[in-house]
Amino acid sequence: MTDEINNPDIPVPEELKGQVAITTLDKIYNWGRRSSVWPMMFGLACCAIEMICTAASRYDLSRFGMEVMRPSPRQTDLMIVSGTVTKKMIPQIVRLFNQMPEPRYVMAMGACASGGGPFKEGYNVVSGVDTYIPVDVYVPGCPPTPQALLHGLMKLQQKIDNESISTSPWYSQGASEAIPIPILGPDLIDPRDFDRIAARRKAAAEPSPEA
């Protein structure tokens, strides 16, 4: 453990080696967070099965301190979007994301969550969860094998390692804004899209100048 967090720039006297570790606040803070990322117990589709297998004995997420899967978003650090995101489900996913405390991370597991996947052309499929919530790591594959998911999680740990307390947005003033929850209309409506829909309607109502 000391190897991981020791700051090599500051020399430790020979007689204190093995008893004292000198580190930076950032480093120990990040070390603590990266070793206890709690994912949400939240599965969508096929990829969820591989996620469960990753948590099971063969691949064993607890080696990374991630075995504590929490069913409640209030207690989680990481949302693994494991599977196809449908229009009917996206309001709930956005709501869950809004309920997660910061710092929070999102991983898009598999082709579907990243960009729609093989079902992209379907009428009820959202092409990529990142159109609504920010994604930190994308894991390609259909489905990603458990080892591929572990690789993605290690990539997330690297990302956490590179963050700093002084610049982290979750300690800055003012609460972060919640993402507006999509509405189920005649088709899925993103509340941020109202203007665009109105403009389209106007364009459709007016006869085009060429005609």
Binding site: E121, I183, L184, G185, I189, D193, F194, I197
Partner: peptide, 28 residues
């Protein structure tokens, strides 16, 4: 190409021509 770039809403959606989102009440 990414097919969403060809959609006017940059997403997998389409609405009826006369649709106004402001007045929409979801049936829920």
């Amino acid at each position: 190409y990414r097919i969403e770039d060809k959609n006017p809403f940059h997403g997998n959606v389409q609405y009826p021509d006369e649709f106004t989102p402001e007045g929409w009440v979801p049936e829920g």
